[in-house]
Amino acid sequence: MEVLLAIVIGVLYGGGLYLMMRRNLIQLIIGLGLLSHGANLLIFTAGGLRKGGAPILAEGEKAFAALPSDPLPQALILTAIVISFAVTAFALVLFLRTYEVVGTDDVDELKETDT
């Protein structure tokens, strides 16, 4: 399972970085999205893949019968997903506005500020 996920993460990172280096604004934002998915899966995999139950002790129990799953990576990923959702939404609006003002979605044309 780890090997499979590692390959998936690698593909996500590779695809994300490739798209970010294209000249198109839309591909840039898709690339950023893939990159953040890759990072989320990386946390998930690095946090340890285990088929355990929820880490809740029943009343009176002092220890877990079987090793439970670690809930923290899931909490971290959830937070990261929410953040990347908001940021992606903002970036989409920004890029749309840029497209309207500049009149092109070619990143190479965004050079009015360069000297």
């Binding site: 890759g38 990386l42 946390i43 990576p73 940021v87």
Partner: peptide
Amino acid sequence: LLSSALFLAGIGILYGM
């Protein structure tokens, strides 16, 4: 955003370790 993704990946690996 690229830097944030890197930061997040670093956090993931560090937590796993």
